[in-house]
Design a binder for these strands. Structure first.
Lengths: 140, 140
DNA sequence: ATATATTGTAACCATGTTCGTTACAACTAT
DNA sequence: ATAGTTGTAACGAACATGGTTACAATATAT
């Protein structure tokens, strides 16, 4: 299992917008050129980012803009915008309640699973878009 | 995106083995009864757990046994046994090197992604099978 | 030796997701 | 009106998941 590339594409997208929104009109075609995927994929992801309040899109005339400042956007915001699954681990549905383990497996594992998912999300929440932007500028 | 239920099934499997291996012959049919899935699925997962050195399986006669003590088996061991993907995040393949962002996106994001994945794995490494077993016994 | 229970695999199917693509209606500034 | 762009639907290929049947290989017990 891997997370879809939507996450890295969305992050790339937001970095491009942050970098170029004052200089160019950042369209799905522009972004598709930098990311090297089909423009429709970009439009779909931009739609998800827009629905989550991370970008604003000018319909008709075209162009995407950050809806928040780059230091208010974290990797967790981006991740949640494009990965709609709220629960990371798929639990098998029907453990047998007549088995002592089957009966208790949920109450034993659920809290552990939550802890694991939270550890990942907390780490994501620590990293902001402006941090990535600074590093990108440094590497240029 | 969700992790496959192989992880929770494998954990359930190991808990059953730890709990019952001295009292019963724990076969794929026995386990399938507690977990409520097809025995072939159990056999496949047992095969992965065996390949990772977590269980021993008696061919012919049947029965699965822990290959390590329960406090030496962590959720990370189980996770790695059944989820073969080494890298959690799928990066888009060909960012455009002629774009300043496309050129630097990998060097900027790779270390962040590693950190995130490590946060999750470290949390998994903290939880042992014997810990889960104790809690299950308490809840019985 | 034979019978029995079990494991290890292969093969197949249905379903769902991802990624890519084409096509086109709707929108907005000029 | 025109042109460029967005939003979305529809389709296809590839792959993963979860389920099932079938059967050869294995090892114990009789």
């Amino acid at each position: 299992m891997q997370f879809s590339s939507r996450f890295t594409i969305a992050t790339h997208t937001l970095l491009c917008i942050a970098m170029f929104q004052e200089e160019y009109k950042v369209t799905s075609n522009f972004l598709a050129g930098s990311i090297n995927v089909n423009p429709v994929i970009i439009r779909n992801i931009l739609g998800q980012l827009s629905a989550s309040g991370l970008v604003e899109i000018k319909a008709g005339v075209g162009g995407a803009y950050l809806a928040k400042s780059a230091d208010e956007i974290t990797l967790l915001d981006i991740f949640k915008a494009v990965e709609k699954e709220e629960v990371l681990f798929h639990f098998h549905e029907n453990p047998n309640p007549e088995c002592p383990i089957g009966r208790t497996i949920h109450s034993v594992m659920d809290s552990k699973i939550d802890t694991i998912q939270l550890a990942m999300e907390n780490e994501m929440a620590e990293i902001t878009l402006s941090e990535l932007l600074d590093e990108a500028k440094k590497n240029m």
